[in-house]
Protein backbone atom coordinates (compact mmCIF):
# COMPACT_ATOMS: atom_id res chain seq x y z
CA UNK A 1 0.00 0.00 0.00
CA UNK A 2 1.18 3.45 -0.73
CA UNK A 3 0.86 6.22 1.79
CA UNK A 4 0.27 9.13 -0.50
CA UNK A 5 1.27 12.53 0.70
CA UNK A 6 1.49 14.76 -2.34
CA UNK A 7 -1.26 16.67 -4.12
CA UNK A 8 -2.20 14.94 -7.36
CA UNK A 9 -2.52 16.97 -10.54
CA UNK A 10 -5.84 18.67 -11.09
CA UNK A 11 -7.28 21.83 -12.56
CA UNK A 12 -7.62 24.77 -10.21
CA UNK A 13 -10.26 27.40 -10.84
CA UNK A 14 -10.45 30.54 -8.78
CA UNK A 15 -13.59 32.33 -9.97
CA UNK A 16 -14.49 35.71 -8.55
CA UNK A 17 -18.09 35.65 -9.74
CA UNK A 18 -20.63 33.21 -8.38
CA UNK A 19 -22.02 32.56 -11.85
CA UNK A 20 -18.63 31.38 -13.01
CA UNK A 21 -18.38 29.07 -10.05
CA UNK A 22 -21.84 27.67 -10.75
CA UNK A 23 -20.95 27.09 -14.37
CA UNK A 24 -17.80 25.28 -13.35
CA UNK A 25 -19.70 23.24 -10.79
CA UNK A 26 -22.18 22.33 -13.47
CA UNK A 27 -19.48 21.47 -15.97
CA UNK A 28 -17.51 19.23 -13.64
CA UNK A 29 -20.47 17.97 -11.57
CA UNK A 30 -19.27 15.01 -9.49
CA UNK A 31 -15.72 15.47 -10.80
CA UNK A 32 -15.49 18.97 -9.37
CA UNK A 33 -14.36 19.71 -5.83
CA UNK A 34 -15.81 22.81 -4.21
CA UNK A 35 -13.11 24.41 -2.08
CA UNK A 36 -13.97 26.58 0.89
CA UNK A 37 -11.47 26.89 3.70
CA UNK A 38 -9.84 23.66 2.59
CA UNK A 39 -9.88 22.06 6.02
CA UNK A 40 -11.68 18.94 4.82
CA UNK A 41 -10.07 18.92 1.41
CA UNK A 42 -6.37 18.33 1.30
CA UNK A 43 -6.40 15.17 3.38
CA UNK A 44 -8.81 13.53 0.98
CA UNK A 45 -6.86 14.65 -2.05
CA UNK A 46 -3.34 14.01 -0.81
CA UNK A 47 -4.40 10.58 0.42
CA UNK A 48 -5.89 10.01 -3.02
CA UNK A 49 -9.05 8.75 -1.42
CA UNK A 50 -11.05 11.10 -3.66
CA UNK A 51 -10.18 11.87 -7.25
CA UNK A 52 -11.73 15.08 -8.52
CA UNK A 53 -10.54 16.49 -11.82
CA UNK A 54 -10.94 20.10 -10.85
CA UNK A 55 -10.95 22.23 -7.77
CA UNK A 56 -13.30 25.21 -7.71
CA UNK A 57 -12.06 27.68 -5.13
CA UNK A 58 -14.85 29.86 -3.74
CA UNK A 59 -12.65 32.06 -1.60
CA UNK A 60 -12.37 34.82 -4.19
CA UNK A 61 -16.13 35.27 -4.49
CA UNK A 62 -17.02 38.28 -2.38
CA UNK A 63 -20.76 37.58 -2.64
CA UNK A 64 -20.31 34.40 -0.63
CA UNK A 65 -18.82 36.17 2.35
CA UNK A 66 -20.31 38.22 5.10
CA UNK A 67 -23.19 38.46 7.50
CA UNK A 68 -26.16 40.54 6.33
CA UNK A 69 -29.70 41.34 7.32
CA UNK A 70 -32.37 39.38 5.59
CA UNK A 71 -36.10 39.89 5.35
CA UNK A 72 -36.53 37.75 8.42
CA UNK A 73 -33.38 37.57 10.45
CA UNK A 74 -29.89 37.28 9.02
CA UNK A 75 -28.15 35.70 6.09
CA UNK A 76 -24.60 34.39 6.34
CA UNK A 77 -22.54 33.81 3.23
CA UNK A 78 -21.27 30.26 3.02
CA UNK A 79 -17.65 31.35 2.66
CA UNK A 80 -17.79 33.39 5.86
CA UNK A 81 -15.15 32.07 8.21
CA UNK A 82 -16.06 30.58 11.53
CA UNK A 83 -13.92 33.21 13.20
CA UNK A 84 -16.02 35.96 11.64
CA UNK A 85 -19.14 34.29 12.98
CA UNK A 86 -17.70 33.90 16.45
CA UNK A 87 -16.77 37.58 16.53
CA UNK A 88 -19.94 38.99 15.00
CA UNK A 89 -21.76 41.23 17.45
CA UNK A 90 -25.22 40.58 16.12
CA UNK A 91 -24.82 36.83 16.11
CA UNK A 92 -23.46 36.99 19.61
CA UNK A 93 -26.42 39.05 20.73
CA UNK A 94 -29.27 37.31 18.93
CA UNK A 95 -28.01 33.91 17.85
CA UNK A 96 -25.50 33.09 20.50
CA UNK A 97 -26.19 29.41 19.96
CA UNK A 98 -24.47 29.62 16.60
CA UNK A 99 -21.42 31.51 17.81
CA UNK A 100 -21.11 29.14 20.78
CA UNK A 101 -21.25 26.19 18.43
CA UNK A 102 -18.82 27.74 15.96
CA UNK A 103 -16.39 28.45 18.79
CA UNK A 104 -16.09 24.74 19.51
CA UNK A 105 -15.20 23.78 15.96
CA UNK A 106 -11.75 22.26 15.60
CA UNK A 107 -9.04 24.70 16.64
CA UNK A 108 -8.50 28.47 16.46
CA UNK A 109 -6.21 28.02 13.48
CA UNK A 110 -8.80 26.00 11.62
CA UNK A 111 -11.57 28.43 12.53
CA UNK A 112 -9.53 31.26 11.08
CA UNK A 113 -9.77 29.75 7.62
CA UNK A 114 -12.57 27.22 7.90
CA UNK A 115 -15.86 28.45 6.51
CA UNK A 116 -19.42 28.03 7.68
CA UNK A 117 -20.34 26.31 4.45
CA UNK A 118 -17.41 23.96 4.72
CA UNK A 119 -18.25 23.13 8.28
CA UNK A 120 -21.83 22.35 7.35
CA UNK A 121 -21.09 20.18 4.34
CA UNK A 122 -18.01 18.38 5.67
CA UNK A 123 -17.84 14.68 5.13
CA UNK A 124 -18.40 11.94 7.68
CA UNK A 125 -15.72 11.20 10.24
CA UNK A 126 -15.71 7.44 10.25
CA UNK A 127 -12.08 6.35 10.36
CA UNK A 128 -12.70 3.38 8.13
CA UNK A 129 -14.23 5.65 5.51
CA UNK A 130 -11.46 8.22 5.91
CA UNK A 131 -8.90 5.48 5.49
CA UNK A 132 -10.18 5.15 1.94
CA UNK A 133 -11.88 1.79 2.39
CA UNK A 134 -14.65 0.87 -0.01
CA UNK A 135 -17.45 0.99 2.51
CA UNK A 136 -21.09 1.79 1.77
CA UNK A 137 -20.42 5.49 2.06
CA UNK A 138 -17.66 5.20 -0.50
CA UNK A 139 -19.90 3.29 -2.86
CA UNK A 140 -19.01 -0.15 -1.57
CA UNK A 141 -21.17 -2.94 -0.26
CA UNK A 142 -20.28 -3.24 3.40
CA UNK A 143 -19.69 -1.39 6.64
CA UNK A 144 -16.54 -2.07 8.59
CA UNK A 145 -17.53 -0.11 11.67
CA UNK A 146 -20.79 -1.85 12.48
CA UNK A 147 -19.25 -5.26 13.00
CA UNK A 148 -19.09 -7.37 16.14
CA UNK A 149 -15.62 -6.12 17.04
CA UNK A 150 -15.69 -2.95 14.99
CA UNK A 151 -14.06 0.18 16.33
CA UNK A 152 -17.19 2.27 16.63
CA UNK A 153 -16.78 4.23 19.84
CA UNK A 154 -17.41 7.43 17.94
CA UNK A 155 -20.23 6.16 15.73
CA UNK A 156 -24.00 6.60 15.85
CA UNK A 157 -26.69 5.39 18.19
CA UNK A 158 -29.60 6.63 16.08
CA UNK A 159 -30.54 6.43 12.45
CA UNK A 160 -28.12 3.77 11.33
CA UNK A 161 -28.87 2.28 7.98
CA UNK A 162 -25.93 0.14 6.91
CA UNK A 163 -23.64 3.15 7.53
CA UNK A 164 -23.12 4.16 11.17
CA UNK A 165 -21.08 7.34 10.77
CA UNK A 166 -22.09 10.50 12.59
CA UNK A 167 -22.33 14.11 11.58
CA UNK A 168 -19.09 15.83 12.48
CA UNK A 169 -20.41 19.38 12.14
CA UNK A 170 -20.78 21.47 15.27
CA UNK A 171 -22.63 24.28 13.52
CA UNK A 172 -25.13 21.88 11.91
CA UNK A 173 -26.87 21.17 15.19
CA UNK A 174 -27.18 24.88 15.89
CA UNK A 175 -28.61 25.45 12.42
CA UNK A 176 -31.28 22.83 12.93
CA UNK A 177 -32.10 24.24 16.35
CA UNK A 178 -32.39 27.74 14.90
CA UNK A 179 -34.57 26.53 12.02
CA UNK A 180 -32.13 27.87 9.50
CA UNK A 181 -32.68 27.69 5.77
CA UNK A 182 -29.95 26.65 3.40
CA UNK A 183 -29.63 28.56 0.17
CA UNK A 184 -28.45 26.28 -2.61
CA UNK A 185 -27.61 27.50 -6.08
CA UNK A 186 -26.85 25.88 -9.37
CA UNK A 187 -27.04 26.92 -12.98
CA UNK A 188 -30.69 25.93 -12.77
CA UNK A 189 -31.31 28.65 -10.18
CA UNK A 190 -31.74 28.86 -6.45
CA UNK A 191 -33.50 26.51 -4.13
CA UNK A 192 -33.88 26.73 -0.40
CA UNK A 193 -34.09 23.83 1.97
CA UNK A 194 -34.60 23.73 5.70
CA UNK A 195 -31.56 22.73 7.74
CA UNK A 196 -33.44 19.73 8.98
CA UNK A 197 -33.94 18.47 5.44
CA UNK A 198 -30.54 19.62 4.23
CA UNK A 199 -28.73 17.01 6.28
CA UNK A 200 -29.52 13.54 5.02
CA UNK A 201 -29.06 10.14 6.52
CA UNK A 202 -27.74 6.89 5.09
CA UNK A 203 -31.23 5.45 4.74
CA UNK A 204 -31.80 7.73 1.79
CA UNK A 205 -28.39 9.06 0.78
CA UNK A 206 -25.70 6.67 1.87
CA UNK A 207 -22.90 8.40 -0.02
CA UNK A 208 -23.89 11.94 0.87
CA UNK A 209 -24.12 13.96 4.06
CA UNK A 210 -26.35 16.65 2.63
CA UNK A 211 -28.95 16.99 -0.06
CA UNK A 212 -26.48 18.94 -2.19
CA UNK A 213 -26.31 17.32 -5.60
CA UNK A 214 -23.34 17.55 -7.98
CA UNK A 215 -23.32 20.96 -9.58
CA UNK A 216 -24.92 22.64 -6.59
CA UNK A 217 -23.20 25.04 -4.23
CA UNK A 218 -24.34 26.01 -0.76
CA UNK A 219 -24.14 29.79 -1.03
CA UNK A 220 -25.71 31.07 2.17
CA UNK A 221 -27.57 30.22 5.32
CA UNK A 222 -30.58 32.21 6.48
CA UNK A 223 -31.49 32.26 10.12
CA UNK A 224 -35.01 33.42 10.89
CA UNK A 225 -35.77 35.93 13.60
CA UNK A 226 -38.03 33.39 15.26
CA UNK A 227 -35.38 32.30 17.74
CA UNK A 228 -33.49 35.57 18.04
CA UNK A 229 -32.56 36.31 21.61
CA UNK A 230 -34.19 33.15 23.01
CA UNK A 231 -32.63 30.98 25.64
CA UNK A 232 -29.86 28.88 24.20
CA UNK A 233 -27.65 26.07 25.40
CA UNK A 234 -24.73 24.56 23.55
CA UNK A 235 -22.27 22.02 24.82
CA UNK A 236 -19.88 19.68 23.11
CA UNK A 237 -18.13 16.77 24.75
CA UNK A 238 -15.03 15.65 22.94
CA UNK A 239 -11.98 13.75 24.08
CA UNK A 240 -9.89 16.86 23.66
CA UNK A 241 -10.89 20.42 24.34
CA UNK A 242 -9.73 21.53 20.95
CA UNK A 243 -9.20 20.00 17.51
CA UNK A 244 -11.58 17.17 18.12
CA UNK A 245 -15.03 16.07 17.06
CA UNK A 246 -17.99 15.71 19.36
CA UNK A 247 -18.57 12.44 21.11
CA UNK A 248 -21.94 13.99 21.83
CA UNK A 249 -23.01 17.62 21.54
CA UNK A 250 -26.25 19.44 22.11
CA UNK A 251 -27.75 22.64 20.72
CA UNK A 252 -30.90 23.88 22.38
CA UNK A 253 -33.13 26.85 21.69
CA UNK A 254 -35.95 27.50 24.11
CA UNK A 255 -38.72 30.04 24.00
CA UNK A 256 -39.39 30.98 27.61
CA UNK A 257 -42.61 32.31 28.98
CA UNK A 258 -41.41 33.57 32.31
CA UNK A 259 -39.95 30.48 33.92
CA UNK A 260 -41.85 28.14 31.69
CA UNK A 261 -40.55 26.54 28.53
CA UNK A 262 -42.74 26.98 25.50
CA UNK A 263 -41.53 25.88 22.08
CA UNK A 264 -38.08 24.45 22.06
CA UNK A 265 -35.64 22.73 19.76
CA UNK A 266 -33.27 20.13 21.17
CA UNK A 267 -30.71 18.87 18.69
CA UNK A 268 -27.87 16.44 19.37
CA UNK A 269 -24.69 16.05 17.40
CA UNK A 270 -22.46 13.00 17.38
CA UNK A 271 -25.30 10.54 17.85
CA UNK A 272 -26.63 10.14 14.32
CA UNK A 273 -25.56 10.75 10.78
CA UNK A 274 -27.56 13.97 10.81
CA UNK A 275 -28.20 16.52 13.55
CA UNK A 276 -30.59 14.54 15.71
CA UNK A 277 -33.67 16.37 16.80
CA UNK A 278 -35.21 15.23 20.09
CA UNK A 279 -38.88 15.89 19.43
CA UNK A 280 -40.01 13.82 22.39
CA UNK A 281 -37.77 15.90 24.62
CA UNK A 282 -39.17 19.09 23.15
CA UNK A 283 -42.69 17.86 23.88
CA UNK A 284 -41.78 16.79 27.38
CA UNK A 285 -40.06 20.10 28.09
CA UNK A 286 -43.06 22.16 27.07
CA UNK A 287 -44.67 23.73 30.10
CA UNK A 288 -41.84 22.77 32.41
CA UNK A 289 -39.58 25.18 34.22
CA UNK A 290 -35.82 25.08 34.23
CA UNK A 291 -35.00 23.10 37.34
CA UNK A 292 -33.17 20.03 38.52
CA UNK A 293 -36.44 18.12 38.81
CA UNK A 294 -37.63 18.81 35.30
CA UNK A 295 -34.09 18.26 34.04
CA UNK A 296 -34.05 14.79 35.51
CA UNK A 297 -37.51 14.01 34.21
CA UNK A 298 -36.76 15.09 30.67
CA UNK A 299 -33.25 13.66 30.60
CA UNK A 300 -34.54 10.22 31.42
CA UNK A 301 -36.25 9.95 28.03
CA UNK A 302 -33.57 11.73 26.00
CA UNK A 303 -31.93 8.61 24.61
CA UNK A 304 -35.11 6.63 24.05
CA UNK A 305 -34.89 4.61 20.89
CA UNK A 306 -31.12 4.62 20.78
CA UNK A 307 -29.45 1.55 19.40
CA UNK A 308 -25.85 1.53 20.60
CA UNK A 309 -23.12 -0.34 18.79
CA UNK A 310 -20.62 -2.53 20.61
CA UNK A 311 -18.45 0.35 21.83
CA UNK A 312 -20.64 3.41 22.17
CA UNK A 313 -23.29 2.79 24.76
CA UNK A 314 -21.72 5.57 26.83
CA UNK A 315 -23.35 7.98 24.40
CA UNK A 316 -26.73 7.26 25.97
CA UNK A 317 -25.94 8.59 29.45
CA UNK A 318 -23.80 11.31 27.91
CA UNK A 319 -26.73 12.44 25.84
CA UNK A 320 -29.08 12.30 28.79
CA UNK A 321 -26.64 14.34 30.82
CA UNK A 322 -26.42 17.02 28.15
CA UNK A 323 -30.20 17.33 28.06
CA UNK A 324 -30.15 17.49 31.84
CA UNK A 325 -27.60 20.31 31.77
CA UNK A 326 -29.61 22.23 29.19
CA UNK A 327 -32.70 22.00 31.39
CA UNK A 328 -31.08 23.23 34.56
CA UNK A 329 -31.80 26.71 35.76
Amino acid sequence: MASFDVMPDMQLYQPVELDDALNLADRYAADGWILGGGQDTYGWLKDRAKHPQAMIDLNGIEALRGIRDSADGIEIGAATTLREIIRDKRINRDYRLLSDAAATVASPQIRNVGTLGGNLVQDARCWYYRRGLSCYRAGGNTCYADTPDGINREHCIFGASRCVAVTPSDTATAMVALEATMVVQSVAGERTVSAEDFFVGPDTHITQMTSLEPGEILTAVRIPAKWAGKKFYFEKIADRNVWDFALVSIAVAMSMDGDTIGDSRFVCGGVACTPHRLRHVENAARGKSLSDESADAVASIAADGARPLNANQYKLPMMENLVRRAMRA
Binding site: P148, D149, G150, I151, D239, R240, V242, W243, D244
Partner: peptide
Protein backbone atom coordinates in the same frame (compact mmCIF):
# COMPACT_ATOMS: atom_id res chain seq x y z
CA UNK B 1 -6.02 10.43 25.64
CA UNK B 2 -3.38 8.47 23.82
CA UNK B 3 -3.66 4.84 22.84
CA UNK B 4 -3.37 2.47 19.95
CA UNK B 5 -6.61 1.41 18.40
CA UNK B 6 -6.72 -1.59 16.09
CA UNK B 7 -9.65 -3.36 14.55
CA UNK B 8 -9.01 -6.92 15.70
CA UNK B 9 -11.00 -8.26 12.76
CA UNK B 10 -8.69 -7.00 10.07
CA UNK B 11 -5.70 -5.60 11.94
CA UNK B 12 -6.20 -2.05 10.68
CA UNK B 13 -4.91 0.77 12.86
CA UNK B 14 -7.56 3.41 13.53
CA UNK B 15 -5.24 6.24 14.44
CA UNK B 16 -2.45 7.14 12.07
CA UNK B 17 -2.45 10.93 12.29
CA UNK B 18 -1.89 13.65 14.84
CA UNK B 19 -5.59 14.37 14.99
CA UNK B 20 -6.66 10.77 15.42
CA UNK B 21 -4.01 10.12 18.07
CA UNK B 22 -5.27 12.97 20.21
CA UNK B 23 -2.09 14.21 21.71
CA UNK B 24 -2.90 16.82 24.33
CA UNK B 25 -3.15 20.40 23.16
CA UNK B 26 -2.68 23.68 24.96
CA UNK B 27 -6.37 23.57 25.80
CA UNK B 28 -6.09 20.19 27.49
Amino acid sequence: LERHVYDPQNGLPANVGFHECRIPTYMD
